[in-house]
Design a protein around this nucleic acid. Structure first.
Lengths: 221, 221
DNA sequence: AAACATCTGGACGACTTCCTTCCGCTTAAT
DNA sequence: ATTAAGCGGAAGGAAGTCGTCCAGATGTTT
């Protein structure tokens, strides 16, 4: 999926482990965010920490690898969804309710300030993210123009709202933690539909807000 | 406000500091949750850690003190709101959009598994929480019966949703962090109103879900 | 105003958690 | 069979947090 852009070819078992690591990190990041101990990721991947560090010298490179992967998959998936749904609102809904990849992408690009800095700075990931944002823009715009979506929200509002609701609660019964996100997402989407729109306070979220990096974080570069 | 149920009377300065500490913890908990370093709380209160520990021998007792305070104030405030708004939906809205105390109450009782265990176990806080839940129940029930609220959600769904949306994002521009919660809350409330209700997947959240404590947490008692 | 008890701040040692390296052993590749 | 790459996980180290302790400050009482 992601062939690390290195010149040398990996030994078969090493390649296998590399993929396992990325897959494991993907899952663990989705649930607990990008700040989980490296050892936990290694355990989930069924390898030792040493192996993990051999492939990814630091957490940042792992986050980049997982991030680019997740974003690319979300992008592909979104394009498919759009191809299959001519109605922008339906497409938006389907996208919002789609699964793990989106969860990871949101975790990394919105929920964790730390990862956000890394993702935002990485040109390759940034490019994919921008494409995705453009698509989201046009979906929201189309939905608003055909009257299926309230017009007082920005596409960034939607992204933030998605992140908030998707994040979920921890320490609750297993079955709930699985069934809750689509349930609450659906309620939230109803709130975004055109209809009985209560005037919104505050201002829409902008791209500049999402690109905003606190000074303290910028120091780490 | 909260006179600590101790027999001995505190020295004037000590009493002042005690109140400062609770107030500071209240604020810090609201923004960063109940797991912030004790020293940060002390700093916010303008006292040394020693003073903090003198009043609250451990974090748990501080959480209880802040929790009971916040819950009581939310309860009082809610009763006032109900007195002033005969329409249940308006009351619900006003309550959801109310300020800092609710934020803390949600942080402690829903967002932090750790604090949830403490709050849930404490009989005194538990009692207030239950009263509050009863009120929420009747509000939701009334709103659903008079047709202003969708009928496929439980009052616990509402509580969870509130928590999720209120939590907000970190590391974004100051003004946004302040204006975002009411904005998103409003969208969410629109999603809860009766009208174009999309069928909800999953199951409603129950009180049992909220009382659920993971085994690992129960060990700490 | 003196004597006393209470309170205060914050330095400090204990502890925990997580990071990262390192190296003897294993395993794929040729 | 040989060799180089890869592996696991123990162990050293850095960072952060906890909670105690005590010399000095401050309020209280007589």
């Amino acid at each position: 999926m992601t062939d690390t852009t290195e010149g040398t070819r990996l030994r078969a078992d090493a390649q296998r482990n590399l993929e396992r690591i990325v897959a494991a990190a993907h899952e663990v990041f989705a649930e607990h965010g990008p700040d989980v101990p490296m050892e936990e990721i290694a355990r989930a991947a069924g390898v030792g920490v040493g192996t993990l560090y051999r492939r990814f010298p630091d957490r940042e490179s792992l986050i980049r690898a997982v991030g680019i992967n997740a974003f690319q998959r979300v992008l592909d998936n979104t394009r498919t969804i759009i191809r299959d749904n001519s109605d922008p609102w339906r497409a938006l809904t389907a996208m919002a309710l789609s699964t793990a990849d989106l969860q990871v992408a949101l975790q990394l690009s919105m929920l964790s300030p730390r990862a956000r800095v890394i993702i935002t700075r990485d040109p390759e990931t940034g490019k994919i993210r921008d494409e995705l944002m453009d698509i989201l823009d046009s979906l929201v715009d189309a939905a608003q123009r055909n009257g299926s979506m309230r017009t007082d929200v920005s596409s960034r509002d939607v992204a933030v709202l998605l992140s908030l609701v998707r994040r979920g609660l921890h320490g609750l019964p297993e079955d709930l933690m699985r069934s809750a996100p689509p349930r609450f997402l659906t309620i939230m989407l109803d709130g975004l539909r055109a209809g009985a729109d209560t005037p919104l306070p505050g201002r829409p979220v902008t791209q500049a807000d999402l690109d905003f990096l606190r000074r303290s974080d910028q120091a780490t570069g």
